[in-house]
Design a protein around this nucleic acid. Sequence first.
DNA 1: GCGACAG
DNA 2: ATCTTGTCGC
Length: 235
Amino acid sequence: MDYTPLHRWDVSCAEAERLQRALRERLVLQPPPDFAPRLAAGGDVSTHRDASRAYAGFVVLDIVSRETVDAVAVRAEVTFPYVPGLLSFREIPALAVAWQQLPTRPDFLVIDGHGLAHPRRMGIACHAGLVFNLPTIGCAKSLLVGRYGHLGEERGATAPLVHRGEVVGMAVRTRARVSPVYVSPGHCMDLPTAVELVLRLADYREPETTRRAHRLVNALRRADLAGAPPPPHPE
DNA sequence: GCGACAG
DNA sequence: ATCTTGTCGC
């Protein structure tokens, strides 16, 4: 698929924050008027402990039949370090390499990380939506900002995620008695729609989009590992 | 100044 | 996220 880079990615942390504050103004926090999604995509990145090598991939699935209709995984280089609040600058360049190899344009994308539930309301899900130009949802496994109150133990229970007096996302119980996931709008998305879609996609704790993308990149990672294994015990 | 801190 | 052994439970 095609996309719009929007800006350079090899920037300083201060410049990255400036870009986030500027890009924030371009966000659309409402789904398209004719939004009737059928194809969901999940994207994920797997990085090494030290090396700059990363694996990135996308899986596209039909939300009705649940069939995987597309899957691409690539090797890529990461240069930006992991800095809380600046995850997009580390992962989006790698995701973009995989995105170019994707033959089908999905109706929306679920990203492993936050959207509006971010210090500057510009998490990786928002940023990815702007760059790839499609509706996006952030679905994270842990909190970056915000707090929430009581959350029922049953599947489908929700509790608003509040940060600085604003509702920025929702804690969502996708499985009974299992820790929740944190859902927030990315781009061309609102919170109710994001929560509904994540619940529709989740058979287990995480939505199938994320699970399948995660398995895909890990498979490529292990395949590479078997091809050139650095011997731990040189005897 | 001191903690907290997506992946 | 990654590095890791065993272990609890369906």
